[in-house]
Design a binder for these strands. Sequence first.
DNA 1: TAACGAACTCAACTTGCGTTGAGTTAATTG
DNA 2: CAATTAACTCAACGCAAGTTGAGTTCGTTA
Lengths: 183, 183
Amino acid sequence: MILDAARARFAKEGYAGATIRKIAGDAGVDAALVMQFFGSKDELFGAVMSITPNALSHFSDSFVGPEHSLGERVTRAFFEVWEGDPEDSEPLMAMLRAAISNEQATSLLREFIQARLAKALIGRLPNDHAATIRAGVASSMLVGLIVGRRIVKVPALVGEDTESLIGIIAPAVQAILSGEDDT
Amino acid sequence: MILDAARARFAKEGYAGATIRKIAGDAGVDAALVMQFFGSKDELFGAVMSITPNALSHFSDSFVGPEHSLGERVTRAFFEVWEGDPEDSEPLMAMLRAAISNEQATSLLREFIQARLAKALIGRLPNDHAATIRAGVASSMLVGLIVGRRIVKVPALVGEDTESLIGIIAPAVQAILSGEDDT
DNA sequence: TAACGAACTCAACTTGCGTTGAGTTAATTG
DNA sequence: CAATTAACTCAACGCAAGTTGAGTTCGTTA
């Protein structure tokens, strides 16, 4: 399937690195066919980028439960999606990689962090300005960990299993979401 | 100056996006001259990427002081460097942007997070395995905030002034560095 | 079985890139 | 002033990319 090949390539090599010819090759097909189906590389990319319903519900579910363990549930859900089924994580990875070099991807990732994650959170927390900001901060921090672990491959993060990381990160996420600050 | 133009372009547009022709144009010079000076695009990029001594000492200094405000000092130093003098922040931005698509940049950023930041931290904390990991986690989280604020431009982060963000983030960084976890 | 349309290939075009080598200006120095 | 070197431009190469249009296979349907 062309879409599968495209998703994997965009996730691994970013927007510029993934060429139509390579994607077509992976799918055992001529590059011109990809063009006929999707019109352009941009449109193919748009078709690939998405947040799967499964990933979304995973995030949403994590907000249900006692507040004292909110940070841990959110952190765990985040890792489960980003390091779980490629079907769910590859579109996210494609967005993240491409967001650095492609404007279209940037706005999609922006919408993901802001609208989706924040909206899911706001139902569970005071729906005010501060909650939105805290949601944005927590999301960006968690994305930063994915960047470190999966893209930059910081040894300290790569060599650690998910549970240990969650043990370290969860309290920090909790601190942000529950709003114990200095101001 | 060619190096100034290159630094700005790499920081704004990443490795692939910044072309030799555009850099040469910014510097009011022919592309061929850039080649004669630096040999190749890779070497030009290598000449641009760096952590300035000023940025480094900024980070180091932030570890000096009482432990209960360590998180706040580190967070503040981080923002001061990344949002301060372009002379210091642009090479970092160039590294970060390029790290997604260029292998050479990936290892440089890896070294930055691991060797430099972590090493500076380890002098101040128990020099064990756990401290290295905590340093990696904190660094990646902070980088994630830069990604959100400066690259993806998440509205919640862009619209907030630095001090408010530090107030939210510092306790989380403190939680990670001081080691109050769940395990 | 004939015909139609979808799925697909082939060869080529265009553009922009990094890069090169030969040539030109400008500055330095003996 | 002559000459050597450094700073620089020009025109072009080769390549890989996205894209195109004409042609081909092939399964479905009348």
